[in-house]
Design a protein around this nucleic acid. Structure first.
Lengths: 246, 246
DNA sequence: AGTAAAGTACAACGTGCATGGTAAATTGGG
DNA sequence: CCCAATTTACCATGCACGTTGTACTTTACT
């Protein structure tokens, strides 16, 4: 009876002030950390896993509960025993998935961005960023679905997703760029804009790529990032270009 | 009985070699240019118009023929008198709409890019590009739907769309950038990449913007383009940045 | 092994929707 | 004003799917 995905009046707003991490559930001593890989909770995992796959491949409205059940190797009834319905399942999957992707990104950056010289750092940062898309294709397929259907999901779901994923990732990129700027290695008048510009450049070729064409190979991706970083550093102007930025 | 949108084996390929502009239909002397605004053909116009609106707002699978009929002010039966079915209607609408948008873009560029100085030209080019998105919101809403659902449309439709719209637009941008490079006002080693980078930069802030947030005002959009163009020209590096591009 | 929780198969209900048919109404051109 | 093409209202069919109830089976822990 919820069915917000076809709701007539979407986009109620949500106060973002509340602590992003919900107050830890009150202990639940009944189930003292059941093996997360085990049977009962394992089913839940399988469902979210399968749901991510199918939602990403089919889109929200095309995805049937039956298809998710098949993908996850459970019965449809089990899905309804774990989740209220299709919509709640979807928000859960999106939220979880976004969190995992953001975690992976931040971990990679931590490991790969070594601080030797600015260009190397930017290359590592850029590769980590586009690496998300190649490592989690299902997730980003799902994200494309959301972007197309924002209007049909309640604002609370969108906000939760944004906070769990994209905002954390973007903040991490901004932090790294700022470090370089603070060291005098970049000239960044407006950090927010520079961050967006950096992300846009490194993802440009895989975003604007003609749709339906085969995915780029790893070597090509590396090349794209390299050229994007060089464009980010030096631009395409010549000395004779009039009107310096400032 | 077509229903390719839920087809199991999508992505048949199509030979792109055939002339992009279909050979002009053989005169059809039966209907010597009936007033395109008039009754009979006017209905068709109303249908594609309404279809664009609803498809953009709802997405392909959520859109019902009934909704399109209501939006267009016709009966559902009339839609089936003009189009084979939902899928053919969709491809037609996408193709037409993409063509119109590309036409408008090229016309604007022709008028606005005056060739006085490189920065001014790039600003005009950038504004024309993002102007598409503000002038044709319904079209781009529909494009987002396609991007999310590429896998569910036959390759022929995708290719036709790409040729009618995005490729023409991108080619025009490339041409203008090349002119500046030829005049020694830009340093462009790889034209295709530079084009993509330019497009990515000018659209960055409206693309990466947190979803669900209110659209930017005209003044903000101008500002975005200005900063993007400056980034495109000069980049964010300092003199001390190691590893020049070449 | 035994028991309670969890999972499954199956059937059913209601809905929304694509698509087609048909006969009456409308409209635009001559 | 008349005719032919077009549009419309209405009905019918068939399918896909979300969701729930129920009774049976499996699983996991003691």
């Amino acid at each position: 009876m919820v069915n917000w995905a076809t709701d007539d009046d979407p986009h109620r707003r949500l106060p973002l002030s509340t602590s992003p991490t919900a107050p830890a559930a009150p202990a639940t001593p009944e189930r003292p950390v059941p093996a997360r890989t085990g049977g009962r909770a394992g089913k839940r995992q399988a469902i979210t896993q399968g749901a991510r796959t199918v939602f990403g491949r089919e889109g929200y409205s095309r995805t049937s509960i039956e298809a998710i059940a098949a993908e996850a190797g459970v019965s449809t009834r089990t899905i309804y025993n774990h989740f209220e319905g299709k919509d709640q399942l979807f928000s859960d999957v999106v939220h979880d998935s976004a969190g995992q992707v953001a975690d992976a990104f931040i971990a990679t950056v931590e490991k790969q961005v070594t601080g030797t010289d600015p260009r190397t750092d930017l290359l590592a940062l850029g590769r980590a960023f586009v690496g998300q898309r190649t490592q989690f294709p299902e997730h980003f397929a799902m994200i494309r679905q959301i972007k197309a259907e924002v209007q049909h999901f309640p604002a609370a779901v969108i906000d939760a997703w944004q906070q769990a994923g994209p905002q954390r990732v973007q903040q991490e990129v901004a932090r790294r760029l700022q470090q370089l700027a603070d060291a005098g290695l970049l000239r960044i008048p407006e950090p927010a804009r520079a961050t967006v510009h950096f992300i846009a450049l490194v993802t440009s070729e895989i975003t604007i790529r003609p749709y339906g064409s085969p995915a780029l190979g790893p070597a090509q991706v590396r090349d794209c990032v390299t050229r994007a970083v060089d464009a980010f550093l030096h631009g395409y102007g010549t000395d004779s270009a009039a009107g310096a930025p400032r």
